[in-house]
């Protein structure tokens, strides 16, 4: 679940967990109603069999690592020997077997994170929930844990719901992303679907740093493409989910990474632009170019920067990489 803060993603997660009670509707996990307003069903959180990792880790400071992880098993009255075995296994998965007897307060942030994870999976829940578990960590650690998480989730095969406001995290971890805004689900899809075919301007803006600008459609569909013109005189050919009536206003979405800058014009569609800024980023260079009097972002992969500020170049937008989203009257 992805969305800006306050969009309701954490609330949704807590509703699934049973930590909040919905006003109406129903929640079903694996065919079992865990909440239903009509039948007044409410399964308390402890009986839902869900593992959860909290933003603050929620590692109990008065227990050791072992006790923290053993807790869910003790609640379930698992035999002592089995507890030891399963805790060891869970800690093994997160690479903390050696820290078992340490007091939880002496752990670093990353270690706490792992303990929380071990605790969430040790009782083999039917569902795993993550509430922005990586947001308190530094960048490096975050990237590493992200990989580990993905690996772990795919290894254990646990269905997981992960809440985040970081689109990078979402695209990397998720099989499917639910984009939320203002308490509503805006779009559900695979990361690629969301990137390539955002259904609203909000989705496009939120998950990427795409170029988005307004234009008016002025042609009928041909070869699945239509043409649109901006007020400033840019002319683009792009695609949409369905044909858009001529004369309608649309948002044009073009990812900077999809574009190319070349020294020479490749074809008739190449657009002559002036480089107004170049930002070298090591593995890529981002350019801001002047196209029809307005700025436009282009990202070029590679460790070499080809263009300098003030120079001229040709901008090439591959066919079907410009996407039209009809501007809704209400938006």
């Amino acid at each position: 679940m992805l969305g800006p803060s306050g969009c309701g993603k954490t609330t949704s997660l807590r509703l699934i967990a049973g930590l909040e009670k919905p006003d109406g509707g129903s929640i079903t996990i694996n065919g079992q109603d865990i909440y239903d307003a009509r039948t007044r069903t409410f399964v308390p959180p402890e009986s839902r069999g869900i593992g959860m990792m909290f933003q603050s880790y929620a590692i109990w400071p008065h227990m050791t690592v072992f006790e923290n992880v053993a807790y869910p098993l003790r609640v379930r009255r698992v035999r002592r020997a089995e507890i030891a075995e399963r805790v060891r296994a869970a800690l093994g998965i997160v690479g903390l077997e050696s820290q078992m007897e340490r007091p939880a307060t002496l752990l670093s942030g990353g270690q706490m994170q792992r303990v929380a994870l071990a605790r969430a999976i040790v009782f083999e829940p039917q569902l795993l929930l993550f509430d922005e578990p990586l947001s308190n960590l530094d960048l490096k650690l975050r990237e590493r844990l992200r990989l580990e998480l993905k690996d772990l989730v795919s290894r254990t095969g646990l269905t997981s719901i992960y809440v985040t406001h970081d689109q990078l995290e979402a695209t990397e971890l998720a099989d499917r992303i639910v984009v939320m805004n203002g308490g509503h689900v805006v779009q559900i899809g695979t990361p690629e679907e969301l990137y390539r075919a955002p259904r609203t301007r909000f989705v496009a803006e939120f998950i990427s740093s795409a170029n988005i600008f307004k234009a008016t459609v002025d042609s009928a569909r041909a070869d699945g493409m239509q043409r649109a013109t901006t007020a400033g005189g840019r002319v683009i050919r792009g695609v949409a989910d369905a044909e858009i009536a001529s004369g309608r206003e649309v948002d044009v979405v073009i990812h900077p990474e999809d574009c190319l800058l070349t020294q020479d014009a490749r074809d008739d569609d190449s657009i002559s632009v002036v480089i107004s800024e170049a930002r070298y980023q090591g593995t890529a260079t981002r350019y801001t170019v002047d196209w029809g009097g307005a700025p436009f972002e282009v990202a070029m992969q590679g460790t070499k920067s080809h263009f300098a500020k003030g120079g001229s170049a040709f901008l090439c937008i591959p066919k079907s990489r410009a996407r039209y989203i009809p501007v809704e009257a209400s938006a």
């Binding site: 930590l19 402890e46 869900i50 603050s56 869910p72 929380a116 969430a120 009782f123």
Partner: peptide, 23 residues
């Protein structure tokens, strides 16, 4: 006491009284 400390106990399967007693 951060409320998530309590909630995480519920999520681990601890009922209200168990959570009180242990956390």
């Amino acid at each position: 006491i951060h409320k998530e400390l309590e909630e995480s106990s519920r999520m681990c399967g601890g009922g209200f009284f168990y959570t009180m007693r242990r956390v």
